[in-house]
């Protein structure tokens, strides 16, 4: 009896907190289906589903184009980070050389430099390279990632040394070992890192704000800012429709990748 009561109490607490945490997202969903009138009345549920808000959102802004841009940019950064970080992590784990620890420490110390502290010269660099309003301007600066290297190194280290040695005896080249053994072996941590970098890139705000000044490569996040300034006080339904469109891809990715993120990121946190 005591156990049952405890269980009920637990579910009650879980449900209430889950509702509180999830409420803003739910609220955005609900409002995106409301007409302006319903909104002003303060209803929580719309009497009927209106899809006009979505239609309007796509009409007023090149939202589809922004979505495309965000996909291209997030995907590029994800692939770039995976390639660059896993190469570095491989070197730190499997290639013995003098000063390896010192160089690794240098890598880790880059995590202490806040990216925002470097944004002014970076902006100037991008300007000088004529990379304003280009995909490369939005992606390449983020390819190198100390955290990713660190995370992958942690996992690469769990590969038994003998696998590498067996490959050496068999004459398998470093690159083949890397591609055929290390990458499949550490599939999970690569998925974790991939999901993480896609998520963070998709959600990036400040840098796209700086290096885009027309629609050509602008991302959805900046689109939201535009929507917000355009629609202020009037059409909140349209704004929320925009929000829903923007968060759905990442929410889906999060739901799929949650298990990986939960395990993988925690592993990175431990030393």
């Amino acid at each position: 009896m005591n156990g049952l009561l405890k269980k009920i109490a637990l579910y009650l607490v879980l449900t209430i907190t889950a509702f509180v945490v999830f409420f803003p997202i739910l609220y955005a969903f609900l409002i995106s289906f409301m007409t302006g009138g319903e909104l002003l009345q303060g209803n929580l549920f719309s009497k009927s589903f209106h899809l006009e808000n979505y239609q309007k959102a796509f009409e007023r802004l090149p939202l589809a184009h922004y979505l495309m841009n965000s996909f291209i940019i997030s995907l590029s950064v994800m692939i770039g980070q995976l390639v660059v970080s896993s190469m570095a992590a491989y070197a730190f784990v499997f290639i013995p050389f003098k000063g390896r620890d010192a160089i690794f420490f240098l890598f880790i110390s880059t995590m202490m430099i806040p990216w925002e502290a470097t944004m002014i010269p970076n902006f100037i660099t991008i300007q000088q390279l004529d990379w304003i309003n280009t995909y490369q301007g939005l992606t390449i600066p983020f390819f190198a990632m100390a955290f990713g290297t660190f995370l992958l190194r942690q996992h690469f280290k769990t590969i038994p040394k003998e696998l590498d040695e067996a490959a050496q005896v068999a004459g398998i080249s470093r690159f083949k070992f890397f591609v055929k053994i290390v990458v499949p072996y550490c599939k999970n941590s690569l998925i974790t890192l991939g999901a993480y970098s896609f998520l963070t890139t998709w959600n990036m705000y400040l840098w796209p704000l700086l290096v885009t000044n027309n629609d050509s490569v602008r991302t959805v996040q900046i689109g939201l800012k535009q929507l917000r300034t355009q629609e202020l006080a009037t059409d909140w339904g349209v704004v929320m429709a925009g929000v829903v469109v923007v968060i759905i891809p990442t929410l889906v990715l999060l739901f799929i990748g949650q298990k990986y993120l939960q395990k993988g990121l925690a592993q990175g946190a431990l030393k």
Binding site: L14, T17, I31, L199, Y205, Q221, R228, W236, F255
Partner: peptide, 28 residues
Amino acid sequence: FRTMYASTMGVSVAASSVVWLFLFHPSI
């Protein structure tokens, strides 16, 4: 429940700010 708690990670800074902007709206 885990998924629901984790969900805010999937909401970008811009999106959540806009949602909260509305939650904070002085009249509606």
